[in-house]
Amino acid sequence: MTALEASGRSAAPAVDAQASAAGTRPVTPASEHTRRATVRKWAEIALFVGPAMVLFLTFVVYPVVSAARFSLYKWNGVSQFSDAEFIGFENYARALFGGTDPATQQAFTTAYSQPFWEALSHNFAIIFLSMAVQLPIALAVALTLNRRFRGRAFTRVVIFAPYVLSEVIAGTMWLIIFDPNGIATELMRGIGLDMPAGGWFEDPTWGFWTVFFIITWKYVGLAIILFLAGLSGVSEDLQEAAAIDGASWWQIQWRINIPLIGPTIRIWAFLSIIGSIQLFDMVWVLNRGGTAGQYSTIASYMMEIGFFRADWGYGSAIAVIMFFLSFVIALAYMATILRRDNAHPRKAR
């Protein structure tokens, strides 16, 4: 890192010296000027992009490449990596369909492939449920709050508070609330209902829904604030004009406000999808994805199997799968849904 950075920094003086040395030779002023400008331009690029590039290469590209390398080996994370056995794509096969060895395929399917697909299905369930639940809630709240009233700033802060709260603190709080002897249980008893048989988080049926409730509570504030920011950019002239033309409140929202914050909604959906694929902190704090993976995500599964089960090669394969999934979905989303926003920034509908 320092080598590259240093070369990036020292490039400018060295080149300048060379350039001034070249200046003693008879050259036409114009070409000399152009050459100096070019050198200067590249020196500036190196100076400004260099450090960021070095950081990017060291902390993003290098770990990704390392994980890809580890994922091709059978490695327990303790022994020297040089002693690890190269097994090609067997770790990927184990996660996806129980491996290629008929002798162990049955066992691997139950022990590895099923938990992997279960975790992945939780991620996708959260993506779709976020669209189906968070989006309508956030839109409704944002449209309702998009007017002047006393305590507007306060209300917005309150709505945004869960998002600002650290995941660990929020998770611990919900653990206390949903404790078998906690407030949530008492409230349910108060209205004559009982808590889920296995407890709020660990019940095989209800665990996922409890966690989805918490995720919604945590992230819906972000959507609301983004939508409110988008709505504040919608010209009041349009709304007044529509009102004069006899449009109802509902028609104004449906025909003017919502279409005009389309780019904001699409960006939020993008962040939500990527966040759902990478969801980790909350499920880990609650109880590492559940005692039986009731609300595991692909990231918590990776951590569990990689670190706690010391199956580093396999864990790395999961990491690479997650990386590709995020990458492909992000690219596809960019190329299709976000394209019109990016291509015609001024004509966003």
Partner: peptide
């Protein structure tokens, strides 16, 4: 770790005695 996970599955009602042995055997194979 596989053994512990298998046992907890029994406690959760999502696994059985055979599941523990299967998970241990699978982990041993890796």
């Amino acid at each position: 770790g596989a053994m512990n996970d298998g046992i907890v599955n029994i406690f959760n009602g999502t696994g059985d005695a055979q599941g523990v042995v299967d998970m241990m055997t699978a982990a041993a194979a890796t």
